[in-house]
Design a protein around this nucleic acid. Structure first.
Length: 208
DNA sequence: TCATTGATGTTCT
DNA sequence: GAACATCAATGAC
């Protein structure tokens, strides 16, 4: 039985937070409408010791300021014209976070299609894709993930049948951190990023 | 000031 | 499976 996480509890490891965010609902309220979706893919970034993290060796640049804030803070990162959504997991001054990489649409499917100009699984099966689908902008940088307009509903959670652990995506040349098992996915869910994946067409990987 | 480089995505073949 | 479109933070100079 998976317990619903308290995002402000900094005693949990970032890997544990990443796992426990699976099955929770991410919600975005904008003037154009509300979109939401179940989190199906996450990655952990372990701050000062993690070569692949922006805060490796406690690096402090203007961009990563929010990473040093309290657990539950939204850290947004703009890259190649896309925005990537992260949630800070540890106490002030300890820059670890979880990257949300995929959601299964729940509400606002038509708005997502309009914003993306795509359809099907391509709507939200990637960190940049889901940001575009949900209308996430840098305006939410540094805000809390517990309150609108961009927030997680911590009152209900779907249970994955199996959580699969894999290396993270898109981080070559980071020595042992390239292959570190820090990516967590709902096995069988089609909104997980990447091409070669197994799809459970009857349950999408959820318990009934 | 400027070249480099990605926690990406789309569009080809 | 591979090429490329794209852009701003970063760090070297």
């Amino acid at each position: 039985m998976m317990n619903i996480i308290d995002i402000t509890n900094t005693n949990l490891s970032t890997e544990e937070v990443a796992k426990q965010l699976l099955g929770l609902k991410l919600i975005s309220e904008t003037p154009k409408g509300i979109t939401s979706g179940w989190i199906v893919e996450t990655e952990a970034y372990l701050g000062s010791i993690d070569r692949a993290a922006h805060t490796y060796k406690y690096r402090k640049t203007p961009r990563v300021k929010a990473m040093y804030d309290q657990a539950g803070t939204i850290y947004l990162y703009s890259m190649r014209g896309h925005i990537l959504l992260n949630i800070v997991t540890k106490e002030v001054g300890n820059p670890e976070a979880v990257l949300i990489r995929g959601i299964q649409p729940d509400r606002g499917f038509e708005l997502m299609k309009k914003r993306r100009g795509q359809k099907g699984y391509n709507l939200t099966n990637g960190p940049g894709k889901l940001s575009q689908a949900m209308g996430i902008t840098m305006a939410e940088y540094g805000r809390s993930i517990t309150k609108p307009p961009l927030y997680i509903d911590f009152s209900i959670q779907r249970k994955p049948k199996t959580i699969l652990t894999t290396p993270r995506i898109g981080i070559p040349n980071k020595k042992e951190w390239t292959k570190a098992p820090l990516r967590f996915i709902v096995e069988g869910n089609p909104y997980v990023s990447g091409r070669n994946k197994t799809i459970d067409k009857t349950t999408y990987g959820w318990e009934l």
